[in-house]
Design a binder for these strands. Sequence first.
DNA 1: ATTTTTCTGTAACATATGTTACAAAGGCCA
DNA 2: TGGCCTTTGTAACATATGTTACAGAAAAAT
Lengths: 224, 224
Amino acid sequence: MIQDYPFLEKSPLFRGLSIEEISSAFADVHYQVKKYSKGQMVVSAGDKVDRLLIVLSGSVKGEMIDFSGKTIKIEDINPPMPLAVAFLFGKSNTFPVNIITNEDSELLVIPKESILRLFQENKMMLLNFLNAISNRSQFLSQKIKFLNFTTIKGKIANYLLQYVSQGILEVVLDKSQNELAELFGVTRPSVGRGIRDLHNEGLIEANGKNIKLIDIQGLKECLK
Amino acid sequence: MIQDYPFLEKSPLFRGLSIEEISSAFADVHYQVKKYSKGQMVVSAGDKVDRLLIVLSGSVKGEMIDFSGKTIKIEDINPPMPLAVAFLFGKSNTFPVNIITNEDSELLVIPKESILRLFQENKMMLLNFLNAISNRSQFLSQKIKFLNFTTIKGKIANYLLQYVSQGILEVVLDKSQNELAELFGVTRPSVGRGIRDLHNEGLIEANGKNIKLIDIQGLKECLK
DNA sequence: ATTTTTCTGTAACATATGTTACAAAGGCCA
DNA sequence: TGGCCTTTGTAACATATGTTACAGAAAAAT
């Protein structure tokens, strides 16, 4: 079964392991492959997280529900990524979001006990898991810094300054304004306006996705 | 040495273990207790995280630095809490913040290899560590939801609705407006204004720290 | 080549929040 | 009691960002 999904080697949880190693680790451990049709709810917010889910095919999305019952799409999850790694352990063991398939999908379901057995038998998997949760935390940390500590111009400046630290002064953006907007938690026109403002202030020369960084010090000032 | 710090039993990393068990687990493992005087920098942002630090006495703070060189206090960390658990593993293995002592302090320093050995020998510690990182993620998730998904009125409403779920309809706030402002990442007058608005709209009756919750459904609507 | 979709640029307008300031109320302590 | 400090209430004003809308450019699909 496991051998049918060779790209599992690319999953953060199995990195550094060959598909044979993965497969043999799974030999004496319980797991399931479940099929879901498009639009089906895989997990409801509040369900107990007593198993690890990994997307094998198709794709799923996480949707948050607030008190008033409205839903907001949080993120898409594609193969071979795991779901909700940060909720398998920790204080709250319930899914924070609904998980719904975007299309017909298959998920690998591994009960929590099995996970612990995998960890015991294969130190690499444990390390990978630690890395996965840690990365999640780091991602969230970064996101908070972004959301909380700067204006939109600051966010753009910060984003561009990441290139500077790599010695790149003529940037070709690898994301659309929409993607940047989502990353920054703001609206798309605001991103456009921010870029235009930086341009008008002479800090950058923006032309579509091509951006020349002119006044590095000025950009740093934007971080407030 | 370890026995000198019995409150380590209360550290998230050693929960469920007696001080004797902790001490014996540490018997054949490298570690250090380091003393720092008040105001000393324990770790600079960017330093490699190749060791786990746990506050034994005193207290330390984490300060973030942005590109322009300004510092912002992130949080205080008191005994017996660990530092930067989410950065010992994961992609980025450098401290995201400066760590500075608030007062004379002692820190327990455990190299990463020692941590891994502790995990191998004591499954409880591994579980505790997984829990600690997971909790951190969950905390950050929650914070992001708060920062990103609601207006100030929404944040206040959300805060008040937590009481409702405990069956409390006449709240006595346990935080000042200043503290709420900090929690929400907004300014103090804005919190005041938010409360006043909710009051004027008839959703609550606010009088200083005493708040009667009138229109629960309306409060839920505020979450947008 | 043509159509369709996505992306960009921009504008007018509405609104939430920050900024600054000050006065009144409540706690604390000497 | 009086004087200090913190907290609250509130106002006028500035500003950043969201909202909505539309047109042209670019990219993708047919």
